[in-house]
Design a protein around this nucleic acid. Structure first.
Lengths: 230, 230
DNA sequence: CTACAGTATCTGGTACGCCATAATACGATT
DNA sequence: AATCGTATTATGGCGTACCAGATACTGTAG
């Protein structure tokens, strides 16, 4: 549309400030495990690694702190937040409640476009599983839920889910690698889509709850199994 | 026990860093309307008003930005976030889902301590309404929900609710002042407590949903009525 | 070998300066 | 006089240097 045209015309300015770039870098580094939980995040070291000043690093650390990815020990400084099993379960529970809510709303709307969009995301997930591309599985799963929320204009809830999800990201990357998850995961999600197609709000709610409940159970098993080795 | 003893012994250091103090100040200033939505938050002005350096101010602004209280216009700088009616409704909806969940869990636990704690908060709310102390109504209402969440160890969900609540705080302060809200509000909340006492999970869930739904409806009326005058 | 002092490290916090950008005011040219 | 270009101002983005206080480490003296 006119937006796309304008974008084509527009002189490509980075638009992103240095701080935002650094924020993304550090968050990514935490999320995919370059920084491990409990690692200290020494400001001046980060300055060197990122090539930015302390001002920027401090603002980034503050931001990540309010996202729950970084914890601040008094007089000790910031560390990568530890994720205990109880907190992870709580996060899954909240996701269940919100994703269930969104699924119900989708079902009640009975719109073919919603179903089509969800099917498309789901196909993407199946393909990624087939190609054994786990990173793609994660992003496609995110986009599945994103459509679930945005199709019924629930961007705030999506923001909350997104915020919580980064905190359990390394759990997610472990759960999807679990045995048979490549079959069961998409199966559970297709149940959500089916219920939405039927306009079955309660069914969609339950199916969404079941999906995260399964993920939560796997995460719990993974986390309690990993604890002794830590 | 030993924790309390240690706390009693401890030399009372502020423990709070300057940044946290400034953060609370600015958040409070936004929440109770000293800074109005849309107001620009000029860094150097805030430095002067708070008596702290720009570094601290910037970190505070970043933090509030990630809380959703402050928005950052590119090349313009931070302003107090505007709250549109749709976003407010979404926030109420999320609160409904999470508070309903917590209420259900409380009911399923069937613990007399929970009921007692909730009754106490509720009594506080009634007293505050009687004394016409609206600030106390707000804090007591918060503490009611806080017990709802913390009694079943749902501190993450409580954090989410709290985070969202500050964004609609000025709406809350208007809804509680509404005609008859001093009777109906506590009535609805006592229904939640009743259901919990009965161990009626579904009833508690519904009662909690009803309560926020009522608040949401009032907020919508207030907000749409205020819009033209803006 | 222990105790104590000194030192290095690190965060919290401050001050100051530079640059880029946006808006506005002002002045010059046509 | 209208318009265009330029200077100024306001402000955010970013960097650097510095100091204070807490902590951890280390080496030396008794």
């Amino acid at each position: 549309m006119s937006g796309a045209l304008k974008d084509a015309i527009r002189v490509e300015r980075p638009a992103k400030t240095l701080r935002e770039l650094a924020l993304d870098k550090v968050r990514e580094a935490i999320v995919n495990g370059y920084f491990r939980p409990g690692d200290r995040l020494v400001e001046r070291d980060l300055c060197a690694q990122l090539g930015v000043s302390r001002t920027v690093v401090r603002e980034v650390l503050r931001h990540l702190e309010s996202e729950g990815l970084v914890a601040n020990l008094p007089n000790k400084g910031p560390i990568v937040a530890q994720l205990d099993i109880d907190e992870a379960k709580q996060i899954y529970e909240i996701r269940g409640a919100l994703e269930g809510m969104a699924a119900r709303l989708c079902a009640e709307r009975r719109s073919p476009e919603i179903v089509a969009a969800l099917e498309e995301s789901l196909a993407g997930i199946r393909n990624s599983y087939r190609d054994n591309d786990m990173a793609a599985v994660l992003t496609n799963t995110s986009s599945f839920y994103q459509t679930l929320f945005t199709m019924v204009d629930r961007n705030v809830a999506w923001g909350v889910v997104n915020l919580l999800t980064v905190r359990i990201n390394h759990l997610r990357s472990m759960t999807i690698k679990t045995e048979r998850r490549g079959i069961e995961g998409p199966l559970q999600m297709s149940k959500i889509v089916d219920a939405i197609r039927r306009g079955d709000g309660e069914g969609a709610y339950q199916a969404a709850m079941d999906h995260v409940a399964a993920a939560s159970a796997i995460a719990e098993a993974v986390l309690s199994a990993k604890k002794p080795a830590d």
